[in-house]
């Protein structure tokens, strides 16, 4: 009975939402020709400009790399403060956890739009936005793995009278290092995609060219940029997932 009411509630919610947002498959079928035209305009891709904008691909990669680094750098101490296995002050744990949850609610594109407003339309704004974004993800993942650490493994350090800092240096840091590096790589993969997209709101990198070509209606150039981007992303994903596997296996 209870289950039926729940299902009925969700069906009603869904139908109401469909009604409010004017879901109509007629418009989708009618619009199919337009989408088809749009996509056919993208082919064949025009690769003539890819070499010209290649420095911007490098910029996008650099943005992703540097912001992962900054994010990780900030995330490490915060994750230590948020994990209740390492920091025994309940207040600090709760405070930083709430803070991290708030940080993660803000979507990357929104952060980028805000940073562009604050720092101007350049890669620097993108780096700040992505650093903040990576910081949120890495610290969340890291404090969760810190909490899954076996507390008994820290006992020897406590037994010889080690301080809080030596507990971190000899007990925790070596234990979570592989996981930490693997999270950083994972976030780097996310950041490359994000760095390309946030250019659409002016945060530099290859997204700027996507935006320009959209405005000019040069769809075949867009497809060439996207294909190159996919190639880069796929290569890095492949390498990074290989490294991650080795890190977590050993």
């Amino acid at each position: 009975m209870n289950k039926k009411i729940t299902i009925l509630f969700f069906v009603a919610l869904f139908l109401w939402a469909c009604y409010e947002t004017e879901v109509s498959f007629k418009s989708l079928i009618n619009g199919f020709a337009d989408v088809n035209f749009f996509i056919s305009e993208m082919f064949p891709p025009d690769f003539s400009e890819v070499s010209k904008v290649f420095p911007d691909f490098i910029t996008t990669l650099k943005m992703a790399f540097v912001s992962t680094f900054y994010g990780a750098f900030l995330a490490y101490p915060i994750a230590i403060l948020a994990a209740n296995t390492v920091t025994k002050t309940k207040f600090l744990n709760v405070f930083f956890r709430v803070f991290l949850n708030l940080v993660r609610t803000i979507p990357d594109l929104l952060l980028a739009a805000l940073c562009v407003a604050l720092f101007g339309a350049n890669p620097f704004a993108g780096i700040i936005a992505l650093s903040f974004f990576s910081f949120g993800i890495i610290s969340k993942l890291l404090y969760e793995s810190l909490e899954s650490l076996d507390e008994n493994s820290l006992d020897p350090i406590r037994a010889v009278g080690g301080s809080w800092l030596s507990k971190i240096k000899y007990g925790i840091a070596p234990a979570v290092l592989p996981q930490f590096l693997s999270y950083c790589l994972y976030v780097f993969e996310i950041n490359i995609r994000a760095a390309a997209i946030i250019g659409l709101v002016g945060a530099g990198g290859i997204g700027t060219w996507l935006n320009i070509n959209f405005d000019l209606g040069q769809y075949n150039k867009i497809s060439s940029l996207l294909l190159t981007l996919f190639l880069i992303v796929a290569t890095i994903d492949f390498i990074s997932s290989k490294i991650r596997k080795r890190l977590t296996d050993s």
């Binding site: 947002t21 004017e22 879901v23 109509s24 418009s27 989708l28 619009g31 199919f32 337009d34 989408v35 749009f38 996509i39 594109l109 995609r193 390309a196 997209i197 659409l200 959209f214 996207l226």
Partner: peptide, 19 residues
């Protein structure tokens, strides 16, 4: 394909809006 890009493609088809 990123969501934002898909959104742009679908806007071409069904016009701007929630759908």
């Amino acid at each position: 394909i990123p969501e934002i890009l898909l959104a742009i493609i679908f806007i071409v088809g069904v016009g701007p809006g929630a759908f």
